[in-house]
Design a protein around this nucleic acid. Structure first.
Ligand SMILES: [Mn+2]
Ligand SMILES: [Mn+2]
Ligand SMILES: [Zn+2]
Ligand SMILES: [Zn+2]
Lengths: 151, 151
DNA sequence: CCCCAAATAAGATAGAATCCTATTTACGAA
DNA sequence: TTCGTAAATAGGATTCTATCTTATTTGGGG
């Protein structure tokens, strides 16, 4: 909530314009859901957004929050923080390594990179606290999915 | 399942030793859960592991899979693939950026890094398919949590 | 101002993960 | 080897996130 007002205003203006271009109806609810998210730098979850929006629209339902965020994410107007994780997935490879994640089939492949291994924690990250690990996730379409094989 | 047998054997041996050192009981179920994970390079979920282990222990319950994987993760013997994501969290910052994630309180902070911006998709990742995005997650303890502030 | 596809509210539903409790078991000590 | 006990398990119940269903409302083009 400590974002510069001009940043928020810019986001809201861009949002309105994008919605018009994409033929997404500018409902009261949709606008307030986006405003709540665009005014925060906390990467809020649905419950947090719902709490905020309820102050302006007391009857708004959680489903409307979910529905709009999903729609907006599909249109590239917001994104999901963190990573693709519908369910927990585990790893017995405890060595340092990174992941290639297929956005089609969800397959996760390990890789290491000599180039990346020598990168220290970025100073910009250290400014927030004491880093202890670093993980790179490369998203893309795996060879199998490119060839149209079944997932 | 295409892992070299020696790799699997080494993992199992290390696992037995670690369990003894950490005073974790080597139950039949725990051993088979770890064997299933250590024999796979698919980053399997609980259901997949359950299917595999059931061939040897037909009565094993999903809860035992969950319980053991969680315990082993706490002891650093396995890890959770992907990222910390108990629930969906959203982001209105659509510019390219990375995340610092506090392992104590879950706070997510944005950062960019000139050093990282110029990194191309690693060749090792491109070997798996066509990358389309890249995201770095730095885990650590944020300043607030270091100072013992409440989450 | 009209119309209607799109969007919403509220409750039902699905599914993942955890909790509860009676029973079993691993393993240290005698 | 046997024994005692705390740890672990099985299976059902429960919690909680997210999605779906359906009747109702509404944004916005014509
Ligand atoms: Mn991995
Ligand atoms: Mn972010
Ligand atoms: Zn794929
Ligand atoms: Zn913290």
């Amino acid at each position: 909530m400590t974002l510069p007002r001009e940043t928020v205003e810019a986001r809201l203006a861009a949002f309105r314009e994008a919605c018009v271009q994409k033929r997404l109806r500018l409902t009261h609810q949709r606008m307030e859901v986006f405003r709540a998210l665009a005014s925060s730098e906390e990467h809020p979850d649905v419950e947090s957004i719902h709490r905020v929006v309820r102050k302006r629209i007391p009857t708004i339902s959680p489903d409307t929050i979910y529905r709009n965020l999903k729609l907006l994410a599909e249109h590239g107007l917001v994104s999901v923080a963190g990573m693709s994780a519908d369910r927990l997935r585990f790893d017995a490879n405890m060595g340092p390594h990174h992941h290639f994640v297929c956005v089609k089939c969800g397959r996760i492949r390990d890789f290491t990179s000599r180039e990346l291994e020598h990168i220290a924690f970025p100073a910009e990250a250290r400014a927030f606290g004491a880093p202890c690990s670093m993980h790179l996730e490369v998203k893309g379409v795996c060879s199998a999915c490119q060839k149209g094989r079944k997932p």
